[in-house]
Design a protein around this nucleic acid. Structure first.
Lengths: 210, 210, 210, 210
DNA sequence: ATTTAAACGAGACGGTACGTCACGTCTTCTG
DNA sequence: CAGAAGACGTGACGTACCGTCTCGTTTAAAT
């Protein structure tokens, strides 16, 4: 396969500049909020030329995306192979994970740029694609792995679709974070896990009834 | 109480112009997508002056919001007092409602401007407030009423938090619509309802275990 | 004739802004010289938006052109109908006019922007056309009128082409101004007039010889 | 004297590259016109690095200058010692020279880059200095030599300032080339020579009158 | 023939200005 | 006086070049 015709030479890329841009993007996303964030502003804050940003990122959202990725990967192990905890107690494990998510989404340093990124993802299909392959799908795989383990251990009903199960557990949190007026709490995370596991229906009318 | 000093006199408002603006907003939101929608574009398409828009709406999102409201209210009864169907079969009722939602969110004529509005809501806290009081809260109330009826009828476990229950049922749909790559389906709606009602856990380890 | 489709409505044009732009252009042309003059700079200095400049002028040179025109028309009579002096003494009249030109081209306030405009005229064919019809041709007509009067009065040889004659008198000055290292002087103006009138050749070998 | 610290070593200069740059400059000046000519464009067209241009030339205009010089010096004798023709017939000689100039300035291959250079000369005082010492002054000297010979031969009036005389003959041509709408012609060259030699005034009122 | 220092191509970088688009405010004219 | 029309100051967009600055890679003079 021949190399891309006009792609920039990544080996010559200035790492200090890249870091400055990502930092600036993150800071500004938090400071001025989801909307007034501008490439011009990022470049100015980073002490970089606009062209340098356009050279390496296709859109404002892509910068933010990389900025958030860099924040997560910061010294930690590779996320691609990471796994959710499995202590044998599914409910406890899920609560732990969801509580950690709540903590992240409650910290404005992380939540504000994350929210900005989410807006960009909704508005930019190309960025959405990137977001799916590089963030969402790995996360879904990780969740599914844990749930499958639970299913094999007999903690999960064998006829449950794991994708739907994951949606049931993580969907409400995501929604409340995006649209809810009040902040996320550990209590809410716990309630979602308990309710999802137990189901809404009366014990006497379950599964077999449907 | 005397009228506000600066608020425009709504009695003089031109209804044809208002309709033209809302229609133009809807059309453009679908045509150019959630991003390139502009007030100038709406005004031009509607044959209206920009000032007319600024006089009556505080933001681009507010126009879109009204446009979608107008679309829903179109001749129908007042949504505030509407109720979800209650045939006595909770699962069937929920599936019906969710399938209807899927149909709406699958039709590009409705889905595209709705998506645009969602982006605006996420980016504009003021609009978010309006959206919550005028759309989300009434809807949540409606959902809660139906669920409470089910609880009272013994179809729902008595210890279930109705708010959490509603999140469990409607959250996954909303999420998949916003972020999922593939379109919503009736099958997915059904799966969500069934799984939420039955719960994820094995029958032998339910509720009492928590 | 129908009006231009998209031409701006000149009646709504802001005269204070127009004046500020022309003044700023003139000042900057003098200050930063023929080259570093930018539309952005003019707009900033004038406290105007760039779009306002682009709305009314097709190019940077056109702004400068108008600025210089405005400077000349400043309260004076209409140039279109003006005439060169005619006291009956052609040599004296020409010297007076050329000396006045020398004075203008020696004053940096006028000379610097004029030089900038000249550069633009050379580089922009469209501007060159405007410059010809609105400045050069009226001037040439004015010069030709005076020379024709001289010819009719018997001061100019009857077989002299008036266009060539005008070139002979005004061309050297223009050239020396543009390219010469030393500044223009009254003495040079006088020498050009005298030499052009008398001719280069020895008296004994004139006209009839050619 | 030790060599300059930072001056490049001319002996190592790549002649093929130099030629490619000059050719590219010439071509582009003709193709994209006096304005859109850029150093980046020249480098790209020449297959050279930008730094190579900046190493050897102080400005875009200097490149163009060298390019035109190289075009003229192409195998011919040294211009510095060249002389205008002197057949004894001043008028005929001048016409011959001016007609040759007209031919050059009419050929777009030469005229277009020359025009571009002229614009640069007007805008860049440093380049103007180079242009004067290396092109204009030698040319003026050449012209003056021929005119002085004529004066000594009695073909030119003894009181004529030779610098002014040269301006009178060559100035109009230069001007018409730069600013005139219609192209230069041999007829115009002839007319200028004849008129300059004979003078504008009636024979009966010449020289002695001033 | 080998070394070695430069010139070279390539192109990333911080900048400046370009010309365009949309913002939200304003003013003027029309129905 | 609401509404159309649209000029205005503002600010961001994405692009083109500027001139400087590394990077390896030739390449030609000095070993």
């Amino acid at each position: 396969m021949p190399p891309q015709r006009k792609s920039p030479d990544a080996t010559r890329r200035s790492q200090p500049t890249r870091a400055a841009i990502l930092t600036a993007a993150l800071e500004l996303a938090g400071e001025v909020g989801y909307a007034r964030l501008s490439i011009e502003g990022i470049a100015a804050r980073a002490g970089a030329g606009k062209q340098t940003i356009y050279r390496w990122w296709p859109s404002k959202g892509a910068v933010l995306f990389d900025a958030l990725l860099a924040l997560s990967d910061d010294g930690s192990a590779d996320d691609a192979t990471a796994d959710l905890p499995n202590t044998g107690d599914l409910a406890a494990d899920l609560k732990m994970v969801l509580r950690a998510t709540v903590d992240e989404l409650t910290d404005p340093r992380l939540s504000d740029p994350m929210r900005a990124l989410t807006v960009e993802v909704l508005a930019d299909p190309e960025l959405a694609q990137t977001w799916r392959t590089r963030l969402d799908e790995p996360m879904r795989a990780m969740k599914t792995r844990r749930l499958r383990a639970a299913q094999e251990a007999g903690d999960l009903a064998p006829d449950v679709d794991l994708a739907v199960a994951a949606d049931l557990v993580w969907g409400p949190l995501q929604n409340k974070w995006l649209f809810g007026p009040e902040p996320l709490t550990h209590a809410y995370a716990d309630a979602v896990v308990d309710t999802a596991l137990a189901g809404l229906a009366q014990a006497s009318r379950r599964r077999s009834d449907t």
